[in-house]
Computed example of a mutant assay.
Amino acid sequence: MKVFINKNVLESIVTNTNPYLEKRDLSAITSHIYICAKDGVLNIKATDYEIGLAYKLSNAKIVDDGVATANGKKLLDIIKSLKDEDVLLETMNNYLYIKQKNSKYKLPMYKFEDFPEFPTIQNKAKFDIDAVMLGRSLKKILPSIDNNNPKFELTGAMLDIKDGYINIVGTDTKRLSIFKFETQTQNEFSLIIPKKAIHEMQKLFFDKIEIYYDENILIAQSANFEFFTKLINGKYPDYNKVIPKELKTKIMLNRDKISEGIKTISMLSDTIKITIATESITFESIIEDNSEAKTTIEYTTGVQDEISIGVRNKFMLDFLNSIEDDEFEFGFNDNHLAFLLTSKELQTVIMPINL
Rank of each mutant, 00 (worst) to 15 (best):
T17G: 04
K203I: 07
K23E: 15
D114A: 13
N240L: 15
M252C: 14
F330S: 09
G135V: 07
D334R: 06
Q202K: 11
G331T: 07
S58A: 15
D305L: 14
L107S: 09
L340N: 02
I309H: 00
L346W: 02
K230E: 12
V349K: 00
N102S: 13
V63P: 03
D318K: 03
N71P: 01
F115R: 11
L191N: 00
I272Y: 04
H336A: 15
T278E: 15
S222H: 04
I79T: 03
R255M: 04
R175C: 07
K80N: 09
I286F: 08
A125G: 04
Y110N: 10
Y236P: 11
F339L: 09
K245P: 07
D256T: 12
R175S: 08
E306K: 10
E288H: 04
V41N: 02
L134Q: 00
L10W: 02
D163A: 11
K23I: 15
A293T: 05
L154C: 07
F189Y: 03
D77M: 04
L142S: 05
I145W: 00
N147E: 13
L57I: 13
N216R: 12
K344C: 12
D305S: 14
V169Y: 01
D214L: 09
L247Q: 06
I121Q: 04
K174D: 13
V3R: 00
Y97A: 11
K344Y: 09
V169P: 04
S81D: 08
K56A: 12
E279C: 06
P244K: 05
D128E: 14
A220Y: 01
P19M: 12
F127D: 05
C36I: 06
E50Y: 04
A277M: 13
E90M: 13
Y110H: 10
L346E: 04
T342Q: 15
T278N: 14
L10F: 06
Y165M: 15
D214G: 09
P143L: 08
P143D: 08
K257A: 13
I98M: 09
Y95Q: 13
P244R: 03
D48W: 01
I209S: 02
S308P: 02
T342G: 10
E329S: 11
F315I: 07
Y299W: 01
E85M: 11
K314A: 07
V67H: 00
R255V: 10
K111G: 14
N233V: 09
A60F: 02
L89V: 03
D238L: 10
D172N: 12
T185I: 11
V14H: 00
T348L: 08
F339W: 03
P352A: 15
L42T: 02
E200M: 06
